Computed example of a mutant assay.
Amino acid sequence: MAKIKVGVLGATGNVGQRFIQALDNHPWFEISALAASERSAGKKYGEVADWKLGTEIPESVEDIEVVAIDPKNIDADIVFSALPADLAMTIEPAFAKEGFVVASNAASFRMEEDIPLAIPEVNPDHLDLIDVQKKNRNWDGCIITNPNCSTIVMAVTLKPLLEFGIESINVATMQAISGAGYNGVYAMSIYDNIVPYIGGEEEKIETETLKIFGDFDGAKVKNAPFKVSASCNRVPVIDGHTEAIWATLAKNPKPDAVRDAFLKFDPGLSHLPTEPKHPIIVRDEPDRPQPRLDRDMGKGMSVSVGRIREGIRYVALGHNTVRGAAGASVLNAELLKEKGYL
C-alpha cells in the first residue's frame, strides 16, 4: 500500500520537530514536504533545523529541501501545522481552500463552530463536522484541530468519568517549560521558581473542555453542561504537564470505582499506529505520577493517573509536546484515514 504524502508547516520549531519524530518510519504516512520561514527556504533541513530532541535528526529528512509556507510549494495530501496562532489564522485556511487536509496544533480555529476540536479517544464523532465545514466554507480541504496540551491530558481522564455524571471540574496545572517553546521562558525566570500565570491557558482549558464533551447533532456541537475552573502554573520541568484534578460527580463514586473506570477504559483504537496500548495508566504508588518517570509512557502518548482519593481527587500527567501536541495531531490524522477523509 502506497503511503500518504504529508507535509509539516513550521517544521524547524519545537513542535515541528516533534511532528517529524512522530512521522519518521510511520506505517501510513511519508513526509514529502517540510515548510518553514523564508530564511530557511531553499536549504536542506539538516542545515537549518536547530534540533533539540534527544534523538538524531531522522536520515529520511536531513536532505529534504525546506520550502516556503505556500500551498503551491507542497506536494502532500495532509499537512500538519505547528505554526504560531497568528500565522495559522491566515495560512491554514489558504491550504484548506486549496484542497489540503490541515491537522492543526494551533489555537486559531479550535473554537470555530464548524471545525472539529478532536481527541480520538474522547469525541471521534466530532470529526464529522468536516462535512459541515466544507459545505459552509466551500472548501475542497478542511481544518481539524487538537486541543491545548493541558486540555488533552485532562480530557482523556474525564472520558471514563462520564458514566458517573460530571457536574463540575476544578484543575490546577503544573506545566513544563517546553510548552512555551524552546526560547519561551527565560532561565532566570523559572530556576528556583514557579510562575502562577500562563497567558490565555486557563481560558483555553475552561472553554475547550466544554466543546470536546459537547453533543454533536449532525450540524453543530452543543457545549457540555458542566463547569470547568482552571488555575495554571509554569514549573521548572522540561517536559510533562502535571494536573491536580477535583471532579464533582453526580453518582458520588468511591475511589475504587473511579480507579476501575480508568483501568477499563478502552476506546477501541488500538489498531491506529500512534494509539498506545493503554491510553490511561493507573499508578498506585503514593507519589506517582511524576514527569521524569511517567511522561514517556506509551511512547509519550499515555496519560498517567494516580493519588485517586475521596472527593473525587486525582493527579494526571501527560507529555505535553507528544500527547498534547504533535502526537495528538498525528493520531487525529490516523482516525481521519480510517473514516475515509484521506
Rank of each mutant, 00 (worst) to 15 (best):
S302F: 00
E206N: 13
G165R: 14
R110T: 00
F226T: 02
V235L: 09
I143A: 01
T12K: 10
W246H: 09
A244H: 10
T151L: 14
T321D: 06
A107T: 03
Q17W: 02
S60E: 05
H26W: 04
K43P: 04
F262K: 07
S229Q: 13
G54T: 10
V258K: 01
E203L: 10
N14Y: 12
L53N: 04
L129N: 01
F29Q: 08
P236Q: 08
D215C: 04
A33C: 15
V185A: 12
D70N: 14
I91L: 04
V315E: 09
M297G: 00
D75Q: 09
S37R: 15
A325H: 08
T173Q: 12
A94P: 00
G298M: 11
G300M: 08
G42C: 00
T173W: 11
P279G: 03
G99T: 01
Y45L: 12
L269G: 03
N193A: 09
T145L: 05
G7D: 07
R18P: 01
D284I: 00
G318V: 04
L336R: 09
A36W: 11
D24E: 02
L317N: 05
L127S: 07
P147W: 10
I74D: 10
I78C: 14
L127W: 10
K72F: 05
V235M: 12
G340D: 03
T55H: 06
E59W: 03
L331M: 14
D125I: 04
E65Y: 10
F226W: 04
I143T: 01
D128E: 14
N146F: 00
G300I: 09
A224H: 08
L317T: 01
V6K: 13
Y314L: 09
R313S: 06
A230C: 05
S302A: 05
G7Y: 03
N25A: 03
V282M: 09
G42F: 02
A187G: 06
R110Q: 07
I312A: 13
F80R: 05
G306W: 03
N25E: 05
V185M: 13
E163I: 07
T90M: 12
G184I: 09
D284Y: 01
R288Q: 07
R234Y: 05
G240K: 14
I205C: 11
E202G: 10
E338Y: 00
G240P: 12
L249N: 10
A103L: 07
F262V: 06
V330C: 06
G340Q: 01
R295G: 00
S32C: 05
D215V: 06
M301Y: 08
D260W: 04
T157R: 11
A118N: 02
E206G: 13
K135A: 14
T90I: 13
R323V: 09
T55W: 11
W51D: 02
T145R: 06
V221I: 11
V6H: 14
S189A: 13
K43V: 04
W139F: 15
T207S: 14
P236E: 06
V237H: 09
C232I: 05
D140S: 06
